[in-house]
């Protein structure tokens, strides 16, 4: 039986079906989880997909962090469960304190929607495990608040520990240190602004997201087997 991935849906999430399809293509069984659901026992990994959870009101992710599912998700993460936040999902994870720092409005107030070249700079996460550092991938970005910020100490800690897992080759949004994706100290919680699920088939321009999704599925399969 394949790894089971739960894709969390908040009111305003809009990438959930693409995300389910892409994870199925990467070899998992994926299904949707409504944001009021607090029972996550059946899942080996959880994904917060892109969109505008709770309308992005107050700040992106600010209200989503109080959704009932988030307490259960935090316990799942604390137990070592693989958790991935894509775009708005990354914003939710920082607001919830499961990843450090914050995502602020892009440099120049520019909404970016374009393919982006990103480089895997660390393989110490469930999303980048066994991918050779230095590997470049082309994955679309689509966001207004994707400029990563954190304090200098947090940045130094993350750099030293290989927790900056993805960097932009050409920074599209003013993100600190060209950061496109980071991970938790244990490597099991990952957030990234690019959308790997939108790069899961050459038919849509790039299949470069698949290695990332497969790494996540492999991590989920390890949980499943345990």
């Amino acid at each position: 039986m394949s790894a089971r991935i739960g894709v969390v849906v908040f009111p305003g999430t809009n990438c959930e079906h693409d995300t389910v399809l892409a994870f199925e293509r990467a070899g998992a069984a994926a299904s949707l989880v409504w944001h009021t659901d607090e029972r996550l026992e059946g899942f080996d990994a959880l994904v917060l997909p892109g969109g505008f959870a709770h309308g992005d009101y107050v700040r992106p992710g600010a209200i989503a962090r109080f959704s009932p599912v988030m307490g259960a998700l935090a316990r799942f993460a604390a137990g070592g469960g693989p958790v991935l936040g894509i775009c708005n999902g990354f914003q939710v994870l920082t607001e919830a304190g499961l990843l450090p720092g914050a995502l602020v409005k892009n440099r120049g107030l520019r909404f970016v929607c374009a393919p982006a070249r990103v480089r895997v700079d660390s393989d110490r996460s469930v999303l980048t495990a066994r991918i050779e550092p230095g590997t470049e991938l082309e994955i679309p970005v689509n966001h207004f608040s994707g400029s990563y910020v954190c304090d200098t100490r947090t940045l130094a800690e993350m750099r030293d520990a290989g927790r900056v897992v993805l960097r932009y080759v050409e920074n599209p949004n003013g993100s600190l240190d060209d950061i496109a994706g980071i991970t938790s100290p244990e490597g099991n919680v990952v957030g990234l602004m690019p959308h790997p699920e939108r790069a899961s088939d050459a038919l849509v321009g790039s299949a470069d997201g698949l290695p990332l999704l497969r790494a996540m599925v492999t991590a989920a399969a390890a949980v499943h087997a345990a």
């Binding site: 107050v58 700040r59 600010a62 607001e95 914050a102 910020v149």
Partner: peptide, 8 residues
């Protein structure tokens, strides 16, 4: 808790 994010 909600209206401001103390990180930023």
């Amino acid at each position: 808790r909600l209206l401001a994010n103390p990180v930023i």
